[in-house]
Amino acid sequence: MIGYKECLFYNTNPEIHQRAKDLRKNMTPAEKVLWKHIRNRKLGKLKFRRQHPIDIFIADFYCHELKLVIEIDGGIHQLPEHREYDIGRNAEMNDMGIEVIRFTNEEVLNSIEQVLKRINETVKGREPYDVH
């Protein structure tokens, strides 16, 4: 049986952990806005972690209870090569049993209520994953 810590970080190496720590210190304006609304179990009493390591990736926000990643995409994500990378990254996370939902910076900064509504719709009625 996989232990809680192993499953939580999906065998992430120390370098990725350090990069995630650095990213937490330098969140984008959009990440800060969303974090204000989902931190401290403000959204459906779910615990979200910011800049959370998952295997070789770092998720903007991660809820381990539901195995849900929320990504906030800047303009670079519109480039074809980055879109391909994101598709592959999503597929790898899906293979780990993790769902990924994405929003643009603009959606978060200009329509935070719509973003929160979509997150609520995504998590509504879902059973928490057994994290122990």
Rank of each mutant, 00 (worst) to 15 (best):
R19G: 05
G88K: 11
M1Q: 04
H52Q: 14
N94T: 10
C63F: 04
D86H: 10
N40G: 05
L66W: 02
H77A: 13
Y4Q: 07
E99W: 06
K5M: 00
V131H: 11
V108E: 10
Y85V: 03
H82Q: 11
K25W: 03
R19C: 01
G44V: 03
K124H: 00
S111A: 05
D86V: 15
K45H: 05
V69S: 08
F61I: 13
E113I: 02
D130S: 15
H17L: 14
E15K: 15
A59M: 07
N26R: 09
D55H: 07
D60N: 09
R126P: 02
Y62N: 08
R24P: 01
I58A: 02
G75C: 09
I2R: 15
D130V: 07
Y4G: 01
D22Y: 13
F61Q: 09
P53S: 12
R24W: 04
H52P: 00
T28L: 08
P53Y: 09
R41Q: 13
G125C: 13
N13H: 06
L46K: 12
A59V: 04
F103M: 01
V123C: 01
I16N: 00
N90M: 08
L8Y: 12
V108K: 10
H37W: 10
E65V: 05
E65F: 08
N90V: 00
W35T: 13
I70Y: 03
R102N: 04
D130I: 10
V115R: 07
K32L: 14
Y85W: 09
M1L: 02
K25G: 03
L79V: 05
M1W: 04
E127T: 11
M27P: 03
K25N: 12
Y129K: 08
E107A: 13
N11P: 01
I2M: 15
R50Y: 01
T28F: 08
E31T: 04
D86N: 09
A59N: 02
I54S: 06
P80R: 15
N105E: 14
N13G: 04
P128E: 14
H52K: 13
F48S: 02
I76E: 01
R50T: 04
K5Q: 10
H132Q: 14
H82D: 01
P80T: 14
C63M: 00
K36L: 08
N94V: 07
H17N: 11
I2P: 15
P53W: 13
N11Q: 10
E31W: 08
L46T: 01
G75D: 09
A59T: 02
R41I: 03
